[in-house]
Design a protein around this nucleic acid. Sequence first.
RNA 1: UGCCCGAUAGUAUAAUGGUAGUACAUCUGAUUUUGGUUCAGAUAGUCUAGGUUCGAACCCUGGUCGGGCAACCA
Length: 553
Amino acid sequence: MTEEKSLNFIEEIIEEDLRTNKHGGRVLTRFPPEPNGYLHIGHAKSICLNFGLAKKYNGKTNLRFDDTNPVTEDVEYVDSIKNDIKWLGFEWDKELYTSDYFQKLYDFAVILIKKGLAYVDESSAEEIAAAKGTPTEAGKPTSARSRSVEDNLRLFEEMRAGRYQDGEMVLRAKIDLANPNMHLRDPLLYRIKHAHHHRTGNEWCIYPMYDFAHGQSDSIEEITHSVCTLEFIPHRDLYNWLIENIGIYESKQYEFARLNMTYTVMSKRRLLQLVNEKLVDGWDDPRMPTISGLRRRGYTAASIRNFCDRIGVAKRENMIDFGLLEFCIREDLNKTAWRRMAVLDPVKLIITNYPEGKEEILIGENNPEVEGGEGEREIPFSRELWIERDDFMEDAPKKFFRLGPDKQVRLKNAYIIQCDDFKKDSDGKVTEIHCSYIPNSKSGEDTSGLKVKGTIHWVSALHAKTAEVRLYDRLFQVENPVLEEDFKSTLNPDSLTIINAYIEPDLANAIVGRGYQFIRLGYFTLDKLTSSDKLIFNRTVGLRDNWAKETNK
RNA sequence: UGCCCGAUAGUAUAAUGGUAGUACAUCUGAUUUUGGUUCAGAUAGUCUAGGUUCGAACCCUGGUCGGGCAACCA
């Protein structure tokens, strides 16, 4: 008997609806992206919620593209969105498009006009905005508000027929110009756009506003629980007004707080700016909070799903520590990533008592977290090695468990060595470290009886291969960039560092899409730009580093 | 100064009128051929003032603070 996880407020609503048989036991949600950008981690929260709800309550989820604005939308985005959802591990029931409903929506508009609840207004955008008043001041009608039903019908038909230019007139709902909810002050329903639509081509020159499409689309599909983010709360009254006056299925909307994360931005508009201004290398730049960026960075779908599970669902504004996402990917990769050795900042180490020309093949487990280690790989060893520069200190503090004059460490999967000497150049930079090894201390057959505190990673200089390694840091320097006058001014100039590293030979067999732990360094994955003559690794995330914490005290 | 939403450890999120818990973060200690992992422990919270009640994080009222709303965007 496991302890039951507490319900979020939407699950509570659904369970209550199920209890009262409100929808005949039916649960149908939908995920409604606009195809005008790539999905980001905030969308992942919504995807996990909508698809997760359906899965949990034996329901279904539709994928519906909200494609009511042909000017900003594109099939490239449609394809990327479908790909990302599948990659995250979810399956939609129906693939739908708001544009499928253009005729229905047009008919709904006609119904409203005939009921005297909608009118064509030829006022300019500025005039209409001015006539809406302010939150504390009622709006005033434009002269168009009193137009006859017959004239409205005729004008709306003419709008559709292409008699008018973009912006010449709009269709508005006739609701209440004094309503404290600004969205009810005769909102726009249709506007003229002589634009090519990625699905309907040139069939239409008028397009419904989002507000005239979204709620009714939910209604057409008979969505039982329409889940969206907080900023649509004031729109709900309008959707309900439309549904009631058109007389269609009552779909109910519930709102939750969108995801915000530290040191990044979470709006398609801003992410698009970064892409367009070439401040990042496209939507899938590994520094981007997009699903495709995280995937390229080495994040797994499971880690993102776990993250979304952990952050919860509520109505209060929130700012999630980016460190939580990092915890989730470390948790996943620790269990699955194969261990390999690589040296990012090399210094030469010579084992003076190891015969010149001698080579040995040592064995290393692929994954110590799993019984049996998931097999093993061969690691060549020889007299000259590369080790990490900061694994050696001439004047080390007491608790430094690595190399230094007269100190002993174990070489991972190899021998214990003792530092005898080292060389420096004229700038005082260490150029060479001389050690002697303890022959009977070999990993797995150690009879030396020696105990050493530290183990360091290494790569045989003779056998090492090289790779480009891309080290990523947070994209922004401040926790919440949008608080700045210009969010781009806080971009972190050091968010990407490209270095060349020595890697153990087996890493040449690395596979795109797999995570590797470079021992003591972090998790890495092959970048899509890798070619046959050049390996490129992205650092997904570093290992937790308590030593760094200690030294920063 | 209109309307709407919200407020529980540093960050999130539970407790739905009856012992304020969990995760991340932080700090101790143990284990460790990764200063990783794992394990054990610690620190730390109900915005405020009233009211209802035997009893309030929870219900009511006022206040404070935060967020949203006046695109031919979604």
